[in-house]
């Protein structure tokens, strides 16, 4: 794991710890992961984060995020 930089936020993303710069939004997180926001859905602290608002929602220390997409299934 990357060493801690003062002020960084500690998130849980899809069950894994992840650090991000303070002030980052959900859209910043999605972009930093290399994901196309049009193909995923995001839940923040058990609530849906609507796609249209991803760039407006600043992340907070301790946030738990789930980022999902469609996979093969029956």
């Amino acid at each position: 794991m990357a060493s801690e930089t003062p002020g960084e936020l500690l998130l849980t993303v899809n069950g894994e710890p992840r650090r991000i710069a303070p002030g980052a939004t959900i859209a910043d997180l999605v972009a930093s992961l290399g994901l196309d926001p049009r193909k995923v859905a995001v839940e923040r602290n058990a609530e849906i984060a609507p796609r249209s608002t991803l760039a407006d929602v600043p992340l907070a220390d301790g946030d738990v995020l789930e980022i999902v997409h469609f996979v093969g299934g029956g």
Binding site: N14, R18, K39, H69, G72
Partner: peptide
């Protein structure tokens, strides 16, 4: 289709879509 976590360690993996 099923709804599952994105593999954040390999975001460029092929996708169903």
């Amino acid at each position: 289709v099923a709804v599952r976590r994105v593999n954040i360690s390999d975001p460029k993996a092929p996708m169903l879509t």
